[in-house]
Structures are given as structure tokens and as C-alpha cells.
Amino acid sequence: MAVIVHEDFQFIVQGITGREALNFTRECLQYGSKIIGGVTPGKGGREVYGVPVYDTVREITDKERVDGTIITVPLAFAPDAAYEAIDAGIKEIIIITEGIPRKDASAIVEYADLHGARLIGPNCLGIIVPDVCRFGSLGGPAVDCRKAFKPGVVGVMSRSGGMTTEICNALTLSGLGVSTAISIGGDPVIGSTYADLIPLFEADEDTKAVVVYSEPGGTAEAELARWTKENDSRLPIVAFVAGRFMDEMPGMSFGHAGTVVNKKVDSPADKMRRMREAGISVAEEIGDIPGLVRERIGN
């Protein structure tokens, strides 16, 4: 079992000939992921690392099953790329591109909802199920990626792509390992929040506990706390909240675009309080996370 992806999951990369896309395309292939095509307008007919490049998404979906797409096109083209993928019938969409205004992100989510597609991101690194499928750029080259992500029992959701790997690395070093890790994105409007995704972990028999990484800004933690209270979840949750120093610096944005303390609900102190009240354990340091997980799952 796994969340969202599976062993036969086949996907494409939109913007495959860019500097970053080349990097992670090669890495995913080395990891064993099935990338069946790439799209860069004007470069149709080429190949990168054996993956055929097309001008349009439909050229691929017309002849093959495409389960997902990773979008890493430049900012100005990102909404268009998402609409193209959704209209071509792709259901799992990851947007890695950073800096998409929230109006555009919101419009993309609404369009995806109307067509039964799911959006992860923007401004995220995607999904990995260790040793099964890597759908995105989590973990770097396959050799480095395998060091940070070993199969195990903990589901991970993180607003920071980098911290997804950091936390999974800590879980792997501790021997607990990772069931599925999802970098959900750091923007104020993202396609899938903790509360949207946690039912998937709930349904995943490999997952025994969930770790979330959070930071200042937004309502996602309050929403997760509410979900946890309202649903009698079998999953213990351990959270880490970064950016505590920002409580002293209202109005300044650090880290991601969504990371700012303007409202009360934005503040790390408020998030920690709400989550603790909902029975979520809050770790003081990344290094404390594995111990807390073990305590909670009685292992």
C-alpha cells in the first residue's frame, strides 16, 4: 500500500528540458520511476535520458495512460500547463514552480476540483513512497535519496520540501522509516492541505503514525487540529513548528511566501497551542521526532 502513487504509477514532466527538470528526471529514472514522456513546446521530437519529448500533453495521453504530471515550467506558464494537464485528463498534478500568485493557484485548484483532479503544490517537491515510486524531486540523486528515505511506518507531510527530506532522514536513521512522504508546498494557497491528505494516510495500512512539519502563517495547522478532534483518527500525529523567532518580527516574511505572522492564527505559539489541545505531540527539535513517534506508537 502507498499513498497517491504506486508501483505502476506512470507520469510525465512538463518543462522537462529545463535545468531543474533535467536533474530530477534523471534522478527519478535512476530511482526506478516510470516517466513516459516530457513536454516542452518547440522541442518535440527530442529525447532526454531516453524519455521522449513532445510539444503537447495530449500527444502522450492520446496513446498512453498517464497517471500524473510534474509541472516545473517558468512561473508565467504554470497555470497554462496545469490547465493543459487537467484538460488532457491527468488526475494527479504536482506543481514545483515557485512564486505563483495565490489568485492563480486558487483558480488552478478550482479547475482541478471541477475535473476530479488533485493538485499537490505549488512550490513543493512532490511525493515519494520509498523503494516504490518517486513522483517529484524529493531526495536528490537516487543514491542520496535512498539514504534519506527507507521504507517504514511513518507518513510525512511538510510545508517545506527541504524539511521533508530532513525529517525523513531522521526517521530513517532512527530505524522507523517512511511509508509515504508528501511535500505539500509552502504557499498561502495550495492544492492539498494536511487535512485533505490525512484521510489517505488513515486508509494506508503501512502508516502507523504521521509527522507534520509546519511553519508560521496560514490556517492549515488549525484545520488539522480540528480534523484530529472531529475524527477519531487511529493515527498519532507528531508536529514540528519552525520559525519561532518570527513571533518577534510581525509582518516580516521568511522562508516561503506563505510564511508571515500577521494574524493571531499565523503565529507558531498559536499553532502549537491548537495542535497540543487536539492531542498532537509537538517536538522541540527535529531530533526529538523519532522518540515521540515511538512513544506514541508504543514501540
Partner: peptide
């Protein structure tokens, strides 16, 4: 951002930078 301390930081972006500054 400029602070008035003495440790120069070149740190990873996003969540890493928040965690490291903390």
C-alpha cells in the same frame, strides 16, 4: 535580512532556514 549578530549565515531556504535560525 540584516540582524546585528556576529555569525554570518548562508543557509538553506524555506523551512530549513527557519529551523536553522531557531
Amino acid at each position: 535580512a540584516e540582524f546585528d549578530g556576529n555569525i554570518g549565515l548562508v543557509i538553506g531556504a524555506g523551512g530549513g532556514s527557519l529551523t536553522l535560525t531557531d
